[in-house]
C-alpha cells in the first residue's frame, strides 16, 4: 500500500461516523442558529420567514416571562444540585462500610435513577394529588392540613425539586461511593493514628481526596439539571403561573403554543451557550488536573 493510501485509511473508516454527525447534529444546529435570526411562524416555509437579525436575542432580555423562566431554571438547578450533592455524598459516607445486605441496599438506592422520567413524573403527580395523594392523606390522617403541593407557586417548585432530588441523588451517591472506596485506605488509617475523629477524617482527608470526582459529578449534574423537562412537564406543565416553567419547557411552549419558532431557537441557543460554558469549565478542569499530575510526576523523577 502506498504511504498516501495508508495516510487516508483512517479517514475512510471515520467517514460514515462523520456523515452521521454532520446530518444528525451539525445540520440541525446550523438550522437552529439560522432560524434564531428569523421571525418564523410554523405555517410558513423557512424561505418565507423574514430575517430579523439579532432581534429575537435582544427582545428576550426585555421579556419578563423569559427572565422569570431563566431565574426559575437557575434556582432549580442550583437547589437540586446542592441538595443532591450533600445528600449523595453524605449517604456514600454513611454506607461506605461492610454490613450484611449492603449490596441489596445499594441496588435499591439506585433504582429511582433507572425509572423513565415520564414515569417518575406520573408517580409523583399521583403522590402529590390534593385529595387522593399519599402525602395529603397521610397528613390528614395525622391531623394536619392538606398542603397545596402542585397548586401553590412556592410549593410547586418545592415539589418539583423534591422529585428531582429523589431521582438523581443516587447518581451522586454511586459516584461518591466509588470515589470513596478507591481512596488509599492506609492514608485514612494513618489519619486515625494521627488522631483524627470521624468528622476530621471526612473534612481533612476524604473530601479533599474525592474532590476531583466530586467536581466532575457536580458539573455533569448541573448540565443535566438545566435540561430537565419531562418530569416537570408531567407534574406541573410549568404552573401554577410560571413558578415551575424551566427554560426547556418554555422553549417547547414558545414553539408549539406561541408559534414563534425564531424566538424558541434563540432561547435554545442561550441554553446551549450556558451548557457549553459548563462543559468547557469541566474540560478545562480535567485538563488542568492532568497537567498538574504530569508536572508532579516529572518533578518526582527529577528528584
Amino acid at each position: 500500500m502506498s504511504t498516501q493510501a495508508k495516510r487516508l485509511t483512517p479517514y475512510l473508516f471515520m467517514a460514515p461516523a462523520a456523515v452521521v454527525l454532520v446530518v444528525a447534529l451539525l445540520y440541525p444546529i446550523a438550522y437552529m442558529i439560522y432560524a434564531s435570526f428569523l421571525d418564523w411562524n410554523p405555517s410558513q416555509r423557512i424561505g418565507e420567514a423574514t430575517f430579523v437579525g439579532l432581534r429575537n436575542y435582544s427582545n428576550l432580555w426585555s421579556d419578563a416571562n423569559f427572565r422569570e423562566s431563566l431565574s426559575v431554571t437557575l434556582k432549580f438547578a442550583a437547589l437540586v444540585v446542592s441538595i443532591e450533592m450533600i445528600l449523595g455524598v453524605g449517604l456514600a459516607m454513611l454506607l461506605d462500610r461492610k454490613i450484611r445486605g449492603m449490596t441489596v441496599l445499594r441496588t435499591i438506592f439506585i433504582l429511582p435513577m433507572m425509572i423513565a422520567p415520564i414515569v417518575v413524573g406520573l408517580i409523583w403527580r399521583y403522590m402529590y394529588h390534593p385529595t387522593v395523594g399519599i402525602f395529603n392523606r397521610t397528613l390528614n390522617n395525622l391531623g394536619f392540613e392538606s398542603v397545596p403541593w402542585l397548586s401553590d407557586s412556592f410549593w410547586s417548585l418545592t415539589s418539583v425539586i423534591i422529585a428531582d432530588v429523589w431521582q438523581w441523588t443516587p447518581f451522586i451517591f454511586i459516584l461518591s461511593l466509588a470515589a470513596l472506596q478507591s481512596l488509599p485506605s492506609s492514608a485514612i488509617e494513618a489519619s486515625r493514628i494521627d488522631g483524627a475523629t470521624g468528622w476530621q477524617q471526612i473534612i481533612y482527608i476524604k473530601l479533599p481526596l474525592m474532590m476531583p470526582v466530586l467536581i466532575v459529578t457536580l458539573l455533569l449534574r448541573l448540565i443535566d439539571a438545566f435540561k430537565v423537562l419531562e418530569v416537570i412537564l408531567v407534574m406541573t406543565n410549568g404552573g401554577p403561573g410560571l413558578s415551575t416553567e424551566i427554560l426547556s419547557l418554555r422553549i417547547a411552549r414558545t414553539a408549539s403554543e406561541f408559534r414563534e419558532l425564531g424566538v424558541a431557537a434563540a432561547m435554545s441557543n442561550y441554553l446551549l451557550i450556558l451548557l457549553m460554558l459548563l462543559t468547557a469549565i469541566m474540560f478545562t478542569y480535567n485538563r488542568l488536573a492532568e497537567a498538574r499530575n504530569a508536572r508532579l510526576r516529572q518533578a518526582a523523577e527529577e528528584g
Binding site: P184, S186, A187, E189, A190, S191, R192, I193, D194, G195, A196, Y204, I205, P208, L209, M211
Partner: peptide, 28 residues
C-alpha cells in the same frame, strides 16, 4: 488509636497525597 499515644509508619508510606510535606508532618 489516637488514645494509645503511638505513631506508625506504613508499608506504602500512607502519606496524605493532597498535603505537602510540611502539612503531612504537622497534621497530628
Amino acid at each position: 488509636p489516637k488514645a494509645r499515644d503511638l505513631a506508625m509508619v506504613f508499608q506504602d508510606y500512607a502519606l496524605y497525597p493532597h498535603m505537602n510535606v510540611a502539612k503531612n508532618m504537622s497534621f497530628a
